[in-house]
Amino acid sequence: MVTTAPDASFARRLFEESGLASSHEPVDAALVRTLVAKHYHVSGNLERLATEKDDTFRLRTGSGDYLVKVSPPDEPESVVALQTAVMRFLEDTARELPVQRVKLTVDGDDNVVLATRDGRTRVLRVLGFVDGEVLARTNAEPDQFARAGEMLGRVDLALAAFTHPADRRALVWDIRHFPRLAGLAEHTPDPGHARLAGEVFRLFDAAVVPHLDHLETQVIHGDFSPHNVVVDPDREDFVVGVIDFGDTVRSAVVFDPAVPMANLLGRTPHDPWLEARAFAAGYTRVRPLGDRELPVLPVAALARLTLRALITDWRAQRAPDRRAYALSHAKDDWTNLERALAARPE
């Protein structure tokens, strides 16, 4: 049970439909190797990677590397189809963008469906592996964060015309649901953290909720975090890969830059908003935000950081097999949130 608050059933549904409600048995690597060889005619060394919910592998072959992803059994096939369709759309309409590519099976399909022992289904896909360093592991300068912002702006411009039957999926990471997840604070063991979360919920209610129905919406990437942006510091354009469309959804456009900004808050203690400001400046140069959206952006970034901290606490208790991954991505969230709140732009 997520919480005893009135929105408990809604929160539970969000977690379930986001594939985060429970742990699942990891898929057998030997089975993955067999399926990839049979349906894609590729083989090599298969290395399991830590991820939030999928079973993910790096496949090293003699002629190039691939990323093999197997969806969790509680993620609907329609949602996986949405993720694939987004990448296909960008490949067809904005080929200049360095978006991860989907490899077809030898029969021309986007994926392979496999059944679990309890009768559910999982979807296996093979994607191109984007080589390089992720932004999270670099010491980027403000102008490079701005370059990353420009890239997300270009992605959002390209996605403006995209539609899909599953794009209105229920997703716990979608910031528009933030006010209905206040009950998660009950599961945060530190009273100081719960207090910080409460302050952000109050800010969101005052600054964002009155405008939610009037914000411009479209399909967005949904998780353009520093862990999903591959970069080359020696290249002028800096960003060489955009990966992981697992949280793509139709939502307010302003929430898309809020995600990476949340990841950048508080990392420079002397100026907690320095990197987030640089990212936002780059984004708005390419994809301007309206007068109604700009004041929403910093509060949305605070909300997303709070949401990640709360979900990490909740997941660490209920999905021990993903605990290390979750905590590695969110280990400084509460410290960074406190710093950012203290220096919040008015």
Rank of each mutant, 00 (worst) to 15 (best):
V2G: 00
T3E: 05
D7V: 05
F10P: 04
R12H: 13
R12Y: 04
R12F: 08
R13P: 01
L14G: 03
E16Q: 12
S18R: 00
G19S: 08
A21Y: 00
A21V: 08
E25D: 13
L31I: 12
T34P: 00
K38R: 15
E47L: 12
K53N: 09
K53H: 08
D54K: 03
D55H: 09
L59I: 05
G64E: 04
V68I: 14
K69C: 04
S78M: 10
A85L: 06
R88I: 00
E91V: 00
R95T: 12
L97K: 01
P98N: 06
V102Q: 04
N111S: 15
V112T: 08
R117F: 08
R117G: 09
G119D: 09
T121C: 04
V123E: 01
R125D: 05
R125L: 04
V130H: 01
G132K: 05
G132A: 11
E133C: 04
T138L: 08
A140W: 01
A140V: 08
Q144R: 15
A146E: 13
R147W: 00
E150Q: 15
L159Q: 01
F162V: 07
F162G: 08
F162S: 07
T163L: 00
P165D: 04
D167T: 07
D167S: 14
A170P: 00
L171C: 05
P179M: 09
R180V: 02
G183Y: 09
A185W: 01
E186M: 01
E186W: 01
T188E: 14
P191A: 12
H193M: 07
H193T: 05
H193Y: 08
R195V: 11
A197G: 11
E199Q: 15
V209F: 06
H211S: 14
D213E: 15
L215H: 12
Q218P: 11
D223M: 10
F224I: 02
V229E: 04
E236W: 07
F245T: 05
G246F: 09
V249A: 09
V254I: 13
D256A: 12
P257H: 08
R267W: 05
T268I: 13
D271H: 09
E275M: 14
F279D: 07
Y283D: 02
P288S: 11
E293F: 06
L294A: 12
V296F: 06
V299H: 02
A301M: 07
W314A: 10
P320A: 09
P320V: 11
D321I: 10
D321K: 11
Y325L: 02
L327M: 13
S328V: 06
A330W: 07
K331C: 10
L337N: 04
L337H: 05
E338V: 01
A342G: 10
P345H: 08
